[in-house]
Structure formats: structure tokens, C-alpha cells
């Protein structure tokens, strides 16, 4: 955890976007968490009344997945992810700055890698050319856009779409972190 970094203000607009986005992500995750608890309670009540909500389990899991990735992006902004601090606690402030820079750059590279994987998986260019998810499935054997959910009556892509959003959100937070590091270096 890096309270000293997360409490520092990154310069200007980027800092405001960073903080605002993190607030929005966390608020979304909190609402989804409340919703999943309600869905689960309703499922139990409905089942015991002999009218099971067949969509409830899949809906609750879907809400949790969305909350998890939205919250994980916010946690990146707040430095809330669990990490091992063996090195960090032993470094001088100057060495600590280099460590934080290395960490941030590696995270950025990792998320860039993940984003490129997700881009190839979703193949937005192919989708544009094919004109529809169904056509893309028929021509390129890419079924991502037509995959159904079991009980929700939705396409699975609505659930999966949190993955690219997670990459975008995490990207903004990492950019703001880099800006803060640059500021601290001055």
C-alpha cells in the first residue's frame, strides 16, 4: 500500500479525472454489491415459496464479477491492493521513488499486454467489417459477441464488457500515478 502516493495530489485535470473515476467505480461496485445481496435474499425467499427465481444465481454472480473488476480498478487508484512491502520498508526516499516508478511502469506494461489480448479477443475491427456478431461468428469463428447467458436472456458480452472497462480505468489510474511520480521528482 502506498498512502504517501495516493494522498498526494497529481497535477491538474488528470488528478481530478483519476479521483472522480475512482469514486465512480467504487460507488458502482458498492451498488452492485448491495444489489447482489438483495438478489440472493429474494432467491431464497422465492424458492421457499415454491417459485424459484431461476436467473438469480447467474445474476448474483454477474453482479459480483462486475463489482470485482470495477472495484479492482478503484483499488489501483487508492493503492488498496495487497502487496508485499519487504523492499519498500527498507528503502531510502530516493530509492523508494525509483521502486514506485518501476512498479508503475511494469503495471502499465502488464495492463497494456492484457488490453491487447482483450482487443484481439473482441476483434472490434472484424466486427465492424462483418457487420454483426452473428456474421463474425460465421466468418471468423469468433463467438464472443453471440455467446448467450444460461438464464438471464442476455448476451454474455454484457457481463464480459467489464474487462475492457477495467483496462481503461486502470490505465487512467496508472497515468495519474506516473504524473504524481513526475511531480515528486521535480
Amino acid at each position: 500500500m502506498e498512502p504517501e502516493l495516493s494522498t498526494q495530489k497529481a497535477p491538474g485535470a488528470l488528478a481530478r479525472i483519476d479521483a472522480g473515476l475512482a469514486r465512480a467505480e467504487l460507488a458502482l461496485a458498492a451498488r452492485l454489491t448491495g444489489a447482489l445481496a438483495l438478489v440472493l435474499a429474494a432467491a431464497a425467499v422465492a424458492r421457499s415459496l415454491g417459485a424459484p427465481l431461476i436467473w438469480a444465481d447467474e445474476a448474483a454472480v454477474g453482479l459480483m464479477c462486475w463489482a470485482a473488476f470495477a472495484g479492482a480498478s478503484a483499488a489501483l487508484a487508492q493503492g488498496a491492493h495487497v502487496s508485499v512491502s519487504i523492499l519498500e520498508s527498507k528503502l531510502s526516499p530516493r530509492a523508494g521513488w525509483w521502486r514506485a516508478l518501476a512498479e508503475t511502469l511494469i503495471l502499465a506494461a502488464l495492463l497494456g499486454w492484457l488490453a491487447s489480448v482483450i482487443w484481439r479477443w473482441l476483434d472490434p475491427a472484424g466486427l465492424w467489417q462483418a457487420g454483426s456478431g452473428q456474421r463474425l461468428a460465421e466468418t471468423a469463428f469468433n463467438f464472443v459477441w453471440v455467446e448467450p447467458t444460461v438464464t438471464l436472456g442476455l448476451r454474455k458480452i454484457w457481463l464480459w464488457s467489464v474487462l475492457p472497462l477495467f483496462c481503461l480505468g486502470a490505465g487512467v489510474h496508472l497515468a495519474a500515478r506516473l504524473a504524481r511520480l513526475a511531480e515528486a521528482a521535480r
Partner: peptide, 18 residues
Amino acid sequence: LWPALKSTALTSAVILML
């Protein structure tokens, strides 16, 4: 209630990401 929900969401997200 709201702080409890936010704290729950953040903690679960951190663990679920793992």
C-alpha cells in the same frame, strides 16, 4: 450503510482480483 457497502466492495474486489 453506504460506507459499509463501499468498504465491502473494495475489500471483495481486492480479494476477487487475486
